[in-house]
Amino acid sequence: MSELDFLSQAFGVTRGQGEEGVVATRDTLQRMNSAFRILTDAMPQMVWSTLPDGYHDYYNARWYEFTGVPPGSTDGEGWNDMFHPDDQDYAWGIWRNSLATGEPYEVNYRLRHHSGEYRWTLGRALPLRNESGEIVRWIGTCTDIHESKMMAEENEVLSRELSHRIKNIFAVINGLIGMSARQNPQLRPMAAELQDRIAALGRAHEFARPHSEQSRPVNIASTLSGLLTEILSAYPALGAGRLTISGDDPEIDDRSATPIALVFHELATNSAKYGALSSEDGSVQIVVAQDDDVVAISWIEDKGPVVAGEPDETGFGTRLVQLAITQQLAGAIERHWLPEGLRVDMKVSASRLKRVDGAPV
């Protein structure tokens, strides 16, 4: 294929017939090529282009300014030598997959700067296809993301340190409560309940705090089911299949994790003391159903001690659950004291479980 034929395909220009048509086509393509180069040289990103087989044959002025290499020295496969040695095989693998499948190319790698340092860069490319759907060229960009990458890593370090300090605070508070209970034996029952609540908050914090890929809890998704499994894992009924979680699984974040942890810790604790989980045959179902922004959560106890009716007095735990659902999650809660067991129906907004992108913290 001649250069004129290739450029005609690449830019979708119909090749003219006869000598005058060929000249006109060539002039049109030359003007388009000049406009393309002017446009790409004016862009802040590094721009590059390859043949359908991946052979690099064009880089804009930003590429040569960034890398400091002589023009043409990175044509063909020479570009990969510009990457950090630890990133070369990975980048090659992603690029070969795109060439084989036609899928968009996107990869982060460290690119050698003209100063000699390696800077983190985002590489992207899309295929240019002709009318038949065949790839006739790849057009790509490289964007320097080094500062934002370093800032993200610094924030991760600060986040881990902050999380460590918060966990220490939980431990100190639990220790102070234990000391007070030892000095005042009459406070021990209340102290034990308070320590359990603080422990639940600690698990919720560790579960929902911002994580990197390295610090993220293994095999636990940032969803309602994941958090409930973490909070209720201390109860043997969960492993025995008498405490089940089913239905939809909306995403959650750090804002909703704390009230959710408190709510289900209280429900499970009361059930283990007085309800279905206090019986060997008792069971609890947690059923979740999401309809657009409304998330309905039901706590359904069965086969526990017979429920005589609603208690005459409302305990602190019940008030805590009410407060968490209605105020912190802006939802509603109903309790049904059925003979076969307590049923608690809760409704909250999905947008209160997980922030909508762009919403304030």
Rank of each mutant, 00 (worst) to 15 (best):
W79H: 11
N80F: 13
D81Y: 13
D81T: 13
M82D: 10
M82V: 07
F83K: 08
F83P: 03
F83N: 15
F83H: 14
H84K: 02
P85I: 01
P85Q: 06
D86K: 10
D86M: 08
Q88R: 15
Q88F: 03
Q88V: 14
D89M: 05
Y90G: 00
Y90M: 14
Y90T: 11
Y90R: 10
Y90C: 00
Y90D: 07
A91L: 08
W92I: 11
G93P: 01
G93R: 15
G93K: 14
I94E: 12
I94Q: 11
I94T: 11
W95C: 12
R96N: 12
R96V: 10
N97R: 14
N97F: 09
L99G: 07
A100C: 00
A100M: 02
T101A: 09
E103N: 14
E103H: 06
E103A: 10
Y105P: 04
Y105M: 10
Y105N: 00
Y105I: 01
Y105K: 02
E106S: 06
E106R: 12
V107S: 05
V107Y: 03
V107I: 06
N108H: 10
Y109E: 10
Y109N: 08
R110N: 09
R110Y: 02
R110A: 10
L111W: 00
L111A: 04
R112D: 06
R112Q: 14
H113M: 04
H113Q: 04
H113G: 08
H114K: 13
H114A: 05
S115E: 15
S115L: 11
S115V: 05
S115F: 05
E117K: 08
E117G: 03
Y118W: 08
Y118E: 01
R119Y: 06
R119L: 14
W120E: 09
T121Q: 08
T121V: 13
L122E: 08
L122A: 09
G123K: 03
R124M: 09
R124K: 12
L126W: 05
L126D: 13
P127S: 04
P127Q: 06
L128W: 07
E131C: 02
S132Y: 08
S132Q: 12
G133V: 01
G133Y: 03
E134C: 00
I135V: 15
I135N: 08
I135G: 07
I135R: 00
V136Y: 01
V136Q: 04
V136S: 07
V136G: 03
R137P: 01
R137T: 04
W138Y: 15
W138H: 05
I139G: 08
T141W: 07
T141G: 03
C142T: 09
C142V: 13
C142D: 15
C142M: 14
C142P: 00
D144C: 02
D144F: 02
I145S: 00
I145R: 01
H146S: 04
H146G: 01
H146P: 01
H146T: 04
S148M: 12
S148I: 12
S148W: 07
S148V: 12
S148K: 09
K149T: 12
K149W: 08
K149Q: 13
M150D: 11
M151T: 12
E153I: 04
E153K: 11
E154S: 15
N155M: 14
N155C: 04
N155P: 07
E156Q: 15
E156K: 13
E156R: 12
E156N: 11
V157R: 13
L158V: 14
L158A: 13
S159G: 13
S159Y: 02
